[in-house]
Every structure is written in C-alpha cells, then in structure tokens.
Simulated scan of single mutants.
Amino acid sequence: MPLKIGELARLSGCQVVTIRYYEKEGLLPQPERTSANYRLYDESDVERLHFIRRCRLHGMNLAEIRSLLAFKDHPTVSCAWINDLVDRHIADVERQIASLQHLKTHLEALRHTCAGDHVQSCGIIDTLDHGSPCACCNEEHCHLNDLTCEASKRKAKQNG
C-alpha cells in the first residue's frame, strides 16, 4: 500500500523536511508521484530510512551513509572497507572521550577554586579572567586553561 510523506515520516520517525532532504541528497530514491503530485512511498522506503537513522545514530555522515547504501544495494566487492570506516569512528570516539576527560579535569579544578562565599573574589571568575594555557593543553592543541596551576598560585598569593 503506497504511503504519503506524512505517513512515511510517522512510520520512520523522520521529519518530513528530513525525508525531502535525504531525497535531494540521493539517500532515498525519487518517489513515484500521484496525478496531484503527492509523493508515494512503500515499505522499502521505511526500511531505508530506518537504516539511515541507525547510521546517523552511529555518527556516520551523509557521504559514508551514501557509500553504505550503495554497497547494500549492490554488494559486489569486499566489505572490508566497512571495518575501516567503523575503526575510524571508534578512534574518533576515543579522541572525543579523551578530550572530554581532559575538560572534566579542568572543570573539576575550576570548581575547587571557589568556596562560593566571597562575593568580591570568586576563584572561578578570577581563573577564567586571568588563567593561562597549561603545557598539556598546548601539546594537545586544546583551548582550555590550566586552572589547577594558575588558581593555586593566585590563591597562595591571596592567603600568603
């Protein structure tokens, strides 16, 4: 039974605008049209959208999804390249995790610079205002501040 775009959106969990975009990008085939120019879809379009959504949930971009769909539609070569694709995504996730752990360390250090009881001298504001890059951040090319070293030096000066 043919589906109109609204029904396809409901069944696939995609927004209508997303479906149109995927058509424009070539991820979905051009649908048949009624005499009134309504798009008509079928169950294979629902399944294709589910596949695309699962790819997106796994962090794949449209070019990668296009390649996976082409392979899925015509599996004529080895699928070893798919392992490489997933390995690249795993490496990217590992870099993101390391970056987030680094950020967490900085945020924890930042949080410890302020007791929360001095209106005029908030350690967090002071550190964000006057902090300088740490060696670790410079090596990793991140733009976080060395909150631990700078905050400790200022606190020692204020208390000393």
Rank of each mutant, 00 (worst) to 15 (best):
L3H: 02
E7N: 04
A9C: 04
G13C: 07
Q15W: 01
T18S: 13
I19P: 04
I19T: 08
R20D: 03
Y21H: 15
Y21F: 13
Y22T: 04
E23F: 02
G26Q: 07
L27F: 09
Q30I: 09
R33G: 10
T34K: 08
A36F: 06
N37Y: 05
Y41A: 06
D42W: 08
S44T: 15
D45E: 07
D45Q: 05
V46C: 11
E47K: 11
I52C: 01
R53Q: 14
R54E: 13
R54W: 05
R54Q: 15
C55I: 04
C55A: 15
C55P: 11
M60A: 03
M60C: 06
E64L: 08
I65H: 01
I65A: 00
R66C: 06
L68C: 13
F71K: 05
V77E: 15
V77A: 14
C79P: 12
C79N: 13
A80R: 12
W81M: 06
W81T: 07
I82G: 01
N83V: 07
N83E: 12
D84N: 14
V86T: 12
V86I: 15
D87F: 07
R88W: 06
H89K: 15
I90D: 14
D92A: 15
V93D: 02
V93E: 05
Q96S: 08
I97E: 11
S99V: 02
L100C: 10
Q101K: 15
H106T: 05
E108G: 05
E108L: 14
A109Q: 12
R111T: 11
R111Q: 14
R111F: 08
T113I: 04
V119W: 11
Q120K: 08
D126P: 00
L128N: 04
D129H: 02
G131P: 00
G131M: 01
S132W: 00
A135N: 11
E139A: 11
E140L: 12
E140A: 10
H141T: 07
C142Y: 03
H143C: 05
H143W: 06
L144F: 14
N145F: 08
D146W: 00
L147V: 14
T148S: 09
C149H: 09
R154L: 03
R154P: 03
A156P: 02
K157R: 13
Q158T: 11
N159V: 14
G160D: 09
